[in-house]
Simulated scan of single mutants.
Amino acid sequence: MTRIAVKRVYETAEESDGFRVLVDRLWPRGIKKENLRFSLWAKEISPSTELREWVHGDPEKRWAEFTGKYRQELDSSPDFGDFLEKIKSKPMVTLLYAARDETQNHALILKQYIEEKLS
């Protein structure tokens, strides 16, 4: 079974990260593409621009609702099935994100969603 980890994009890449997937819609600030070790940029399964901008307006009050809305986007995403096919044979997948908040970010929601779909 595929193991899923979550890591800030600014942390050092390690062999144990396995298949590294950038899951942000926007390229992370301060990092050159040639300097980031990643296997796939899956921006199509990140939160929509509208949803991302909405939650950033008041993240503390909107986080619970954001979680539900993002899961709905994943449910209706034509790209999520293709993404799952690409990763399901990998023993280790690390989702890379740029957000500063390590406890409330879309990569954590995505991790849980992927684990549910793989089980």
Score class of each variant (00 low, 15 high):
E44G: 08
G57P: 01
I87K: 08
T49H: 05
D79V: 09
L40I: 11
Q104K: 15
K111R: 13
F38Q: 02
V9T: 04
K32H: 03
R29F: 02
V23N: 09
K90E: 14
E14D: 02
I109Y: 01
Y97G: 04
K32V: 00
A13C: 01
E14H: 07
D17W: 00
E116D: 14
W41E: 00
R20C: 00
R52I: 11
K7H: 02
D58E: 14
L84E: 09
E73Y: 08
K88F: 12
L96I: 05
L22N: 01
H56R: 15
Y113C: 07
E102C: 02
F66E: 11
L84I: 14
P91M: 11
D82V: 09
L84Y: 07
A13S: 15
I31C: 02
R52D: 03
R37V: 05
L40T: 03
F19P: 00
I114C: 11
H56F: 12
K117M: 04
W54Y: 06
V21A: 10
Y70M: 10
T103C: 06
R52E: 10
G18Y: 05
V55H: 09
F83G: 04
W27G: 00
L40E: 13
L22E: 01
V93L: 04
S48F: 03
R29V: 01
R3W: 02
R37P: 00
K111I: 02
Y10C: 08
T103M: 10
S16R: 08
P28C: 12
K88H: 12
A98W: 01
D75P: 03
E53G: 04
R62I: 06
L118V: 08
T67L: 13
R62E: 11
G30K: 01
L36G: 00
K7A: 07
D101A: 08
A98G: 15
E85N: 14
I31F: 05
L84T: 08
K32W: 03
K69F: 14
E44W: 07
